[in-house]
Amino acid sequence: MTRIQAVFKRELAAYFRSPIGYVLFAIFMTISGLYFASGILYANIDLVGELNFIQSFLFIIVPVLTMRTFSEDRKNGTEVLLFTSPASSLEIVLGKYFAALSLFLIMTAGTLSHLVITALYDGLIDASVWGAYIGFIFLGVAYVSIGCFASALTENQIIAAVISFVIMLVMMLLNFVSSMLGSVASTLISKINLFGLSDVQIGSAGSAVTKALQWLNPTTRISNFVNGIFELSPILFFVSMAAVFIYLTNRIIEKRRWSQR
């Protein structure tokens, strides 16, 4: 535990030893601030809309936030220090993951200032706002793990950022392409109909593909939060997604040690 803490503290501080922490925070606050300010301008403050708006930038912000996580250590040779220390690789991965997640949470906390302003002027802060926050945070829990995973794959930070960008983009696009891929699947099945399926069965197979792809899409999962409905299943979804990617990150690092190349 103390070792996770040691890595965590160093990593979080590292964001603020270089400009990257400040720059990211500034970009985050600019995007959310612009939306909030335009809301004030039109006397129509929409905090849920604001979070939705930032959310559409997360697939750029999070890759930049996480790209250095493992790549930098690998490039500078400091990973030798980490992996020859008594700390296990999982402890190091967790320390780094929580540090990146903390920066995400700090940035999110920055938008709370908008909440305070809204409250001061008797604006509407209802369950849907809190729901939107919870959804947003858990989205971050999953996205940051994807970013860490991508960073463990390469010693080049730019490539790491691009990989996580692509993974997140595909996840976001699942919404649009899932129905298309579903129909592609049903056409394919009807072309090579080995089991003599009826048209209805083929159609339901296609929609099953669509459903499965939509199931994977993180953004649709938080829609209920915005309506003020608190569910455990999306939270479990995001936490398990994070767990899977943290597990994979750890495997990749372990594997590199065992690699024969």
């Binding site: 103390t2 040691a6 400091t78 030798v80």
Partner: peptide
């Protein structure tokens, strides 16, 4: 272990770095 390229975090001060190593090594 002192590898051929010392594994130093260049953005830290010497004492910060050594404190981190001490924490890491328990």
């Amino acid at each position: 272990y002192l590898p051929e390229n010392p594994p130093l975090y260049l953005d830290m001060t010497v004492i910060e770095y050594l404190k981190f190593v001490a924490e890491l090594k328990g």
